[in-house]
């Protein structure tokens, strides 16, 4: 299969990455060569193989659902590109 420019623009939309029109061409070429490489896997018959979902022999641990941290709003907001005193600020969503 091959990826065309429209498909790539659609995937970029899903990934929330804007792609310059000028770069779509080279991106299409690169991604197609990567997918050609990936598709070697089609040589293998895997009908009877179970997918590997975890590399660990044990299942993931669960912990008690209780608060272990908190009251660090100031610290957390410090890294925000835009914040008022209490909240993260984003561009207006609702008019």
């Amino acid at each position: 299969m091959s990826l065309d420019k429209e498909k790539i623009k659609h995937v970029a939309k899903l990934a929330r990455i804007s792609v310059d029109e000028a770069k779509v061409e080279s991106l299409t070429k690169d991604l197609n060569s990567i997918f050609k490489f990936i598709e070697q896997l089609n040589e293998l018959n895997t009908d009877k193989v179970e997918p590997l979902t975890s590399i660990l022999n044990h299942s993931l641990r669960s912990r008690k659902d209780e608060i272990s941290d908190g009251k660090i709003r100031e610290k957390i907001l410090k890294n925000s590109p835009k914040a008022n005193e209490e909240f993260f600020v984003v561009p207006k969503v609702v008019e």
């Binding site: 925000s80 590109p81 561009p91």
Partner: peptide, 17 residues
């Protein structure tokens, strides 16, 4: 671009940001 790290100054709405 909301909670930490770089945020573009371009983009007129949330999705574009």
């Amino acid at each position: 671009g909301v909670r930490y790290g770089y945020r573009s100054t371009q983009g007129k709405d949330l999705i574009e940001m």
